[in-house]
Computed example of a mutant assay.
Amino acid sequence: MFIKPVEDMLMRNADHYLIPADIVANVQTDNNLYHAFLVLTKVKYSKIPVLDNDGHFEGLVSLPLITEQMLSDDQLNVDILMQKRVCDVMEHDVRTVEQVSDIEATLHLMIDNPFVPVVDHEGYFKGIVTRREFMKSFNFLTHEIGKQYDMIEKDFSNSEKAK
Rank of each mutant, 00 (worst) to 15 (best):
P117R: 09
H35V: 05
E68N: 10
G55M: 06
N31P: 01
Q83L: 09
F37Q: 08
K154C: 03
R131N: 08
P117N: 10
K84E: 08
V119I: 08
T29K: 05
D155G: 06
R85M: 08
Q28I: 08
T96F: 01
G55R: 05
T106D: 06
F134Y: 15
F37P: 01
A21W: 02
C87A: 08
I111K: 04
N139D: 15
E98I: 06
Y149R: 12
M82Y: 10
M70L: 01
I128G: 08
P64R: 08
E58H: 02
E122T: 13
E68C: 03
K136H: 12
K161Q: 14
L81Y: 02
K163M: 11
A14C: 12
L33C: 00
A105Q: 11
A21R: 05
M70W: 01
D93K: 13
Y149F: 15
P49R: 12
I19D: 10
I66T: 01
L76Y: 03
V61G: 05
I23A: 04
M1N: 12
I103K: 07
N13G: 11
L18H: 05
M135L: 15
S46R: 11
V116N: 06
D112Q: 06
E133K: 14
S137A: 15
V94A: 07
P49T: 15
N53T: 08
D155A: 07
S62K: 02
N31E: 10
K161M: 12
P114T: 14
L76G: 03
F138R: 10
K136W: 03
T142Q: 10
V89R: 00
E104S: 11
D150F: 06
